[in-house]
Amino acid sequence: MIPNPSPTPPPAARLSGVRKTYGDVVALDGLDLEVRPGEVLGLLGPNGAGKTTTIGLLLGLLRPDRGRAELFGRDSSSRGARARVGAMLQVGRLPDTLRVRELVDLFSSYYPRPLPRAEVLAVAGLEEVRNRLFGRLSGGQQRRVLFALAICGDPSLIFLDEPTAGLDVEARRALWRRIGCLAERGSSVVLTTHHLEEADALSDRIVVLHRGATLAEGTPDEIKARVHRKRIRCRTSLDRDTLRRLPGVLGVEPLVGRFEILTARPEPLLRELLSRDPDLTDLEVVGAGLEEAFLSITREPEADTVGEEAA
């Protein structure tokens, strides 16, 4: 590897001012994004936010309409740049009639300094099924094969597009541990997800995408602080306007005989509520779950119903 003379290492990957459209649909609208060396970057957003398009552009599978996509300081479309990159794509289905070890061997040959096959199989948890045909594997095992192919070239940068989509809780946790191992080895990781919990568990930094633009960016704690909201539900004699003027209230909605009050700081508000209306009943504080909280910043205020987000 050629030593870099500049004091700050260049970003592992970068999008600058990238716009990408599919026909009339604007997938990315002037997006700037940087993947720093050694970091785990979580790209968070609902379906259609532009996450997969972002990965496709960074990998050079798509060409931006405007702006520039780079891998290690080179244009993403250069195949040489991809020698240091591994990718687990969402759409990938491999031929059913190839064995796990044959796929690993094939993909390892593409890279200049691949990991030994035994190590790849061990890291991906595939030793026991290494002689099995891809088509005979369970869904979780098939995802792990895609993961193995992403890491077999010992890449410095790994893209994981919805790595745990369609996995059960146990398989998801297991894959999280494997992704954690990658970060410990010093690789940069970019992962997309629509679960805040997943981004929180794995990322050093989270970028929230919405409609092809950055909605928020920060550490998992900063993002959670931004989206951390509670819903207080109660039956009270106070009217809506009074409630609305209480300190820390972000919104008030009538809810079949009760009110639902949205706040970021529930404790002082509860104290205030109970002192003003000692007869308050049916009290309920709904901890807006992480999913729900995240949705509250990506959803439009008028469409403020939550809960149908797929697990």
Partner: peptide, 11 residues
Amino acid sequence: QGWLLVQRATP
């Protein structure tokens, strides 16, 4: 099925 895409994402 995306097999070509998976390969195109490699060197």
